[in-house]
Design a protein around this nucleic acid. Sequence first.
RNA 1: GCAGCCGUAGCUCAGUUGGUUAGAGCGCCAGAUUGUGGCUCUGGAGGUCCCCCGUUCGAGCCGGGGCGGUUGUACCA
Length: 535
Amino acid sequence: MSETPKKKPGTLARLPRGFVDRDAAEIAGVNAMLETIRGVYELYGFEAVETPAIEFTDALGKFLPDQDRPNEGVFSFQDDDEQWLSLRYDLTAPLARYVAEHFDALPKPYRSYRSGYVFRNEKPGPGRFRQFMQFDADTVGSASPAADAEICMMAADTMEELGIARGDYVVRVNNRKVLDGVMEAIGLGGDENAGRRLTVLRAIDKLDKFGPEGVKLLLGAGRKDESGDFTKGAGLDEAQIEKLLLFVSPSENYYYSVPVGDQTRLIDDDADVEVKEIPLLRDLFKGDVRAYYDSLGLLGRWGHLLQDSPVGTAAVHELNEIVSLVRASGYGSKRIRIDPSVVRGLEYYTGPVYEVELTFPVTNEDGLVVRFGSVAGGGRYDGLVARFRGEEVPATGFSIGVSRLAAALKSLGKLGAEKPVGPVVVLVMDRDQVAEYQKMVSELRAAGIRAEMYLGSSGMKAQMKYADRRNAPAVIIQGSNEREAGEVMIKDLVAGAEAAKTITDNAEWRAARPAQFAAKRGELVEKIRELLAGR
RNA sequence: GCAGCCGUAGCUCAGUUGGUUAGAGCGCCAGAUUGUGGCUCUGGAGGUCCCCCGUUCGAGCCGGGGCGGUUGUACCA
């Protein structure tokens, strides 16, 4: 007795960082979300296909892990036969493997969708986890910008089906080849400048985060963050920076151009009216380059700036086609727009890239207002399947970050974050009557009503607390009194809680026993059904 | 990875110039109430003061190192 009982050391109940448990409310909410997304994709004619969570490491397009840091970025391990395997870090690379493996049997173009967990071995942050869910849709085997346009429209539809209002999100579109063309134009072409091009692209990607001033620093000498840490810049000169910023500065005018006869006409994005012809405009603004570009809108400006670059010109044409396709279907610039700051995945994208951004302020768990930013993204990856086959296979697709989007929907109140209604609980009043209680449960279950018998060993008060905690709609009480009368006592917990709000006195509370009624034992199922139907 | 801030009960946090047995609120469990959720009251359980080393007669507090968390930044297939 004198000895204090030492607590056994035991195993620490803890989760590695970047991983989360999901409770019933969360699962229900996300499942509803997945069903909604699936509905939109099916409507667009996409079909389901799934691949496993583990692939050969090289199939994911990842270099083999080196000895010292085999898990840098990707969770990897060696199989019995010493081949390297990895947990997938996205759903696109595995799809490319799938398509390549079943190429002859698949209809092409091949539209498919899939959802699942992906894994990244990196530092987690707010809204960033090491295991998270993605929902992808891809079209493989079509090089047409119509395939890209379709994905963008589907992305917009998905957001609205999920309850995000028009104007609270935007699908931003860019083209990797446009960026390549610009690099060339400022003298950053060629293999020897590959490293600097990367730095420049990354700087442009930060445009909406740091603004033009911050990007200017990153393109030049470098930038210091608020903790005092310094990020080295791209080291461009004033003229190059000026040109780049002119190129990527957003335009108030969302025009796109359509050929009419041998002329090109500008069409206003939203109003869908013809504006003016380019040759006229060029004369009008002679001498004022900025004003001229502004009047052209983004695509007009780009077309002009890139007129000497074949790649850039082709890219602008692609964007023009995407825009005119989505406009023709009624998707205005509030929903889908060209945005110069979209860079994305620096590795495998080869053409149009897109990103879905939420534009409304989100209040996080700590009550702070944060910009939520990107919840989905994708683009064209014509080279990915080619890694498995000799020939290039054009493909485009996008990926929704389900976990992130779920958090945003929760903040909007569009995700059922309510605790799901629990089962009807049959209390155990007398231990020797367990068989009878179990029979009640069976009758309810046979009638399709969620029900359970209390399986613990505590007294009635604890059983009531249990039912409360389960969010049970009702409990069934049968003690000796009721049993002798051939009855059961049914207590409506929701109505009871409501009634109790006005009772402050303890004696009254105990005497009142609100919202409960006796029913004949034979009418149990019927009465419960009525009670639940009243909800 | 780099930089800043922070680690005391399940949670949120007090804790004096370094000094006896480390506290509060909330939550949890039980009783008041033979068989009724809430309120109230009473009682109870719950601590490696993140870890290790050092300084000291003495460390939750001071010093060094590590680990963990968080924020910014980098990376993001």
